[in-house]
Design a protein around this nucleic acid. Structure first.
Lengths: 107, 107
DNA sequence: ACAGCATGAAATAAAAATATTACACATGAA
DNA sequence: TTCATGTGTAATATTTTTATTTCATGCTGT
């Protein structure tokens, strides 16, 4: 979940999802134009979204022979509340140093 | 919503919420010990959580006269899905440069 | 007076994320 | 061939976030 949250915590990436949600799908250069950002930058943000499993891409050939990389949203539905967050925290790599002093044990 | 996502997208802050969820509340030094991190660092993370409205604090005096700053969770329940995210994206400060080329208009 | 435990905050360092610039390569059309 | 379109990546710069260090304060109890 942490990776998903990190992937969503950026204005560009929210907008990318907004466009994909509205349009169904879009290819990279097209998306870059719609958002008004450069392709390399968009590429970085798409990679994060893809690594988090929020979008997927499919290479296609247009009629005039250009290869277009189409992106679309992978459906997700996550509940964010104290319990779900606490749950996510438990499945984090523990930070070795962790010594509970007697005083704080059950408070 | 962006601020909330950013506030949640960090392992320390998830753990802070985990502890507060389990314990109900905790004061700063106590929390720092439980998490095994320094007070100044914890302070920074608590500030982010508080700025995002996910926690609140209340100063109290212990019986032996020390002032303890207790933190607790502010209840939240957010649905994260393509529609809610797209919605959040729409309420972002628009990035001035935004010129839709004729070609990409309705695709 | 000093130790112990609580508070906060400023200054600095380090690390990670974001953004830009510059390449390289492929295809179809003029 | 050159232009316009598409693809990607590597190197660098910039900005933001995270972390540490240091300082200052207050209150008990010995």
């Amino acid at each position: 979940m942490l990776e998903t949250l990190a992937a969503l915590a950026n204005p560009h990436r929210l907008r990318i999802l907004e466009v994909l949600h509205a349009e169904g799908r879009a290819y990279v250069s097209q998306l870059a134009r719609k958002l008004g950002i450069s392709r390399p930058l968009l590429h970085l943000h798409l990679k994060k979204l893809q690594d988090a499993g929020l979008v997927l891409s499919k290479m296609e050939l247009s009629q005039d022979g250009k290869s277009l990389n189409y992106f679309e949203i992978v459906m997700f539905d996550i509940a964010l509340n104290p319990a779900s967050v606490a749950d996510a925290a438990r499945s984090l790599p523990l930070s070795t140093k962790y010594e509970i002093s007697e005083r704080d044990k059950h408070e």
